[in-house]
Amino acid sequence: MAGVPDKAAGAFRTIGELSRETALPQHILRYWETRFPQLRPLQRAGKRRYYRPEDVALVIRINSLLNHEGYTIRGVQKLLSDERKRVSSASQGPAPAPTGTFGAGSPGGADIGAIRKVRDSLAEALADDSSRA
Rank of each mutant, 00 (worst) to 15 (best):
M1G: 10
A2D: 04
G3R: 07
P5A: 14
P5K: 13
K7P: 04
K7M: 10
F12D: 14
R13W: 15
T14D: 08
I15W: 01
I15P: 06
E17K: 07
S19D: 06
T22Q: 05
T22K: 02
L24I: 05
Q26F: 07
Q26H: 11
L29G: 00
Y31C: 03
Y31H: 14
Y31D: 02
E33C: 05
E33Y: 03
E33G: 05
R35Y: 05
R35T: 00
F36H: 02
F36Q: 04
F36C: 02
L39D: 03
L42V: 14
A45K: 10
G46D: 07
K47E: 13
R48D: 05
Y50M: 12
Y50C: 11
Y51K: 02
R52K: 14
R52I: 08
E54G: 04
D55S: 12
D55Q: 11
V59F: 04
I60M: 12
I62L: 00
S64M: 06
L66E: 00
L66V: 01
N67T: 04
H68Y: 04
H68N: 11
E69N: 12
E69W: 02
G70V: 08
G70A: 02
T72F: 01
T72W: 00
I73G: 02
G75T: 07
D82Q: 13
V87D: 09
V87A: 13
S88L: 15
S91R: 15
S91P: 00
Q92W: 07
P94L: 14
A95F: 12
A97P: 08
A97N: 09
A97L: 13
T101G: 04
F102T: 07
G103D: 07
S106H: 10
G109A: 06
G109E: 05
A110T: 14
A110L: 15
D111L: 07
I112T: 11
G113N: 11
A114H: 06
V118N: 10
V118A: 14
L122E: 08
A123C: 06
A123W: 06
E124K: 11
A125L: 11
L126I: 04
A127L: 09
A127C: 09
A127D: 12
D129C: 09
S131A: 13
R132C: 11
A133F: 09
A133Y: 07
